[in-house]
């Protein structure tokens, strides 16, 4: 049972929720007010939505043996460009204008993702270095767009991305859900998932099987940029403005944590989008739990560091081996089926 790769993250998530429940018995209650759902659990989902989005994009990148450090900057750029366009509109509440703003922001994020993909797939630069460039320059670009100011907007349609409701559920949850479902269906129903896992799992074997990995790698970085863009829109809609300095700060780190917790190895290959979602929710629940427990929210980072360390240690084969050796467990029971003899050296 503990062998399932999502056992530990789910266990940690459930444990945290139980802690919350013990401290605050009303924690699990969800109520319907004005046709909108409210409650701590809904909040966790709502606030976790941007991280889930970025995490989904990052998961595919990591599955190809890559990494994308620039998503935090892309989040900031996306919000900045959308807000800049909105703030220049005569009528911020115009749906058409909002759509143009969203389209511009996402278009730019696609281009930024393509830039990362170009560096990795065409120039052959190590992913961590290639995306470091945009990570550094991207904040500057976001500030350039906002002219160093925090742009506040009043657009109703735009703010709905972050705080609106549809069918009683917060729109941001629905967006994250739709992206999750669509991505899952796309990678598992098409051959994308298989090909991505093959490229990440064994690049040379994939090449000799006729796989053209360049385009695939390019594609995942573009998708990662797009996901970060949507998350950026959500974050700036939530705060009714664009803060080029702080929007999406450290979200790349959180996203990498989320997928690591969710069982996707940083060394590429097998990935689990569901695991990433659980990882993201775990990180968000952690923040909420710290708050519920009445620990000053300044300690969130500390608690996060400890929990992440624990989960990473439990998942580390080297750590497990060392613990096992110390425990001096009895020799493993003989396998119940005969071991097939393999003759090789």
């Amino acid at each position: 049972m503990t062998g399932h790769r999502l056992f530990w993250p789910i266990a940690a998530l459930v444990a945290l929720l139980l802690v919350d429940l013990a401290v605050k018995p009303s924690f699990f209650s969800v109520e319907l007010r004005d046709g909108h759902l409210y409650g701590s659990l809904v909040d966790i989902l709502r606030l976790g939505a941007p991280l889930i989005l970025v995490g989904i994009g990052m998961t595919l990148v990591v599955a190809t043996r890559g990494i994308d450090l620039s998503v935090g900057s892309v989040v900031a750029i996306s919000g900045a460009l959308a807000c800049l366009h909105l703030s220049g509109l005569g009528d911020q509440n115009s749906v058409g204008g909002t759509l143009v703003a969203v389209a511009m922001a996402l278009g730019l994020c696609l281009a930024l993702g393509a830039w990362n993909g170009f560096l990795v797939a065409v120039l052959g630069i190590q992913p961590i270095i290639a995306t470091l460039i945009l990570m550094v320059a991207g904040r500057g670009i976001a500030q350039l767009i906002t002219d160093g100011q925090i742009i506040t907007i009043t657009s109703g349609p735009f703010r709905a991305i972050g705080s609106g409701y549809l069918l009683t559920l917060p729109l941001s949850i629905l967006i994250a859900l739709v992206v999750f479902v669509l991505t899952s269906v796309l990678v598992r129903r098409s051959a994308l998932g298989l090909l991505i896992e093959a490229v990440g799992g064994n690049p040379e074997a994939s090449r000799l099987s006729g796989l053209r990995s360049g385009r695939l790698i390019w594609l995942v970085y573009v998708f990662g940029g797009l996901c970060a863009g949507v998350a950026g829109l959500m974050i700036s809609a939530n705060t009714s403005g664009a803060d080029a300095n702080h929007a999406g700060l450290w979200i790349e780190l959180d996203a990498i944590l989320a997928l690591t917790i969710g069982g996707t190895q940083l060394t590429g290959g097998r990935f689990s989008l569901g695991g990433t979602v659980i990882g993201a929710l775990l990180i968000q629940t952690l923040t909420t739990t710290v708050y519920t427990l009445g620990i000053p929210d300044t300690a969130t980072l500390l608690v996060k560091a400890m929990v992440v360390l624990l989960v990473c240690l439990v998942q580390s084969p080297a750590f497990r081996a060392k613990v096992r050796r110390r425990r001096k467990s009895p020799p493993p029971a003989p396998a119940d089926r005969p071991v097939k003899v393999e003759v090789s050296a």
């Binding site: 298989l194 093959a198 064994n202 074997a205 099987s209 796989l211 053209r212 290959g269």
Partner: peptide
Amino acid sequence: GLVGELTVRENIVLALQA
């Protein structure tokens, strides 16, 4: 040759799928 962490089925269809 093989992608060790993929299944038998996935490894079998890999070249055709590629």
